[in-house]
């Protein structure tokens, strides 16, 4: 079904639902499995509600850009498909709880993988675990090793209590086993060839790259008025300020931040 070298996954959920956690986790799982990744997020200026989405391109070769095409669409709330309507084609594999699939796609021309995500999450411990069920489903579709996923979950959720960690692992296992049942039955196989080279690559986001470049260039004074997407750069510098001898100051307004970095 997928004969291209890269697969584009879009996760679409509500702000505050934890899509960024899924994104970070999936990127790490793919990269450490030996696949190249590129991701791009879109978020509304909202703390909760609204629609946030992230596109992850996974490939056997290096990927350097966003793409319009969506190969796998994960719908995580009612209305999650609306903003991406034009990008979803009859070739897109649509994954989601039946309640989160837009009826316009039930026309027989689209590939729907309907999963009782909400009920399964409830069984595990609550709607918050939906995200990790999705991680399990995607890991299965890409033929990742479940023992490897389990291991990486442990190193990813270092601050979680034992109870939360074990529920996250259960959620991933449930997703993985649902994926193992559903994808072969629908003849969907997203296996990509993996390489040791990708495993050893740096996994960087734009803010990390800017921050590291800044340090390398001798930056020792940072001031900023927070707003996405630059906040991440400010956060990077604040985190590493003491270690690298950098003064970091949140300015009272943007003009101050320009003036104070004289």
């Amino acid at each position: 079904m997928f004969n291209q070298k890269d697969i584009s996954i879009v996760l679409s959920g509500e702000a505050g639902q934890g899509i960024q956690t899924v994104e970070r986790l999936l990127l790490r799982l793919f990269k450490l499995s030996g696949l190249h990744v590129f991701s791009y997020s879109e978020f509304m200026s909202r703390i909760r509600g609204g629609n946030n989405s992230t596109e992850i391109r996974v490939s056997s070769e290096r990927v350097n850009s966003f793409c319009e095409r969506i190969d796998v669409f994960v719908s995580l709330h009612e209305g999650a498909m609306e903003r991406h309507y034009d990008r979803i084609s009859h070739k897109t594999v649509i994954i989601g709880d039946p309640a989160h699939i837009d009826s316009r796609f039930r026309d027989g021309n689209h590939t729907l993988i309907e999963i009782p995500l909400r009920d399964t999450a409830k069984l595990v411990g609550g709607p918050i675990f939906t995200n990790i069920i999705i991680v399990g489903i995607i890991a299965s579709a890409f033929h990742l090793d479940m023992a490897f996923v389990r291991d990486k979950l442990k190193s990813f959720f270092t601050k979680a209590t034992d109870d939360i960690l074990s529920k996250n692992i259960t959620a991933a296992e449930k997703g993985f086993s649902m994926g193992n049942d559903l994808f072969p039955a629908r003849r969907i196989d997203l296996k990509l060839s993996m390489s040791d080279q990708a495993k050893g690559e740096l996994l960087l986001n734009g803010a990390d790259a800017i921050g590291m470049g800044g340090i390398a260039g001798g930056c020792n004074f940072v001031s900023s008025y927070p707003m996405s997407p630059s906040t991440e750069v400010l956060v990077f510098f604040a985190k590493h300020a003491e270690k690298f001898g950098i003064i970091v100051e949140q300015a009272e307004d943007e003009i101050c931040s320009a003036g104070i970095s004289w």
Partner: peptide
């Protein structure tokens, strides 16, 4: 914090590339 253990003004300091390399290595 930059003056906690070192009173030198910023312009006299240089980048610690060893620490930066470690930071980058952690991203693998």
């Amino acid at each position: 914090a930059v003056y906690k253990d070192n009173r030198e003004p910023l312009f006299k300091r240089s980048v610690d590339y060893r620490k930066l390399e470690q930071l980058m290595e952690d991203k693998r």
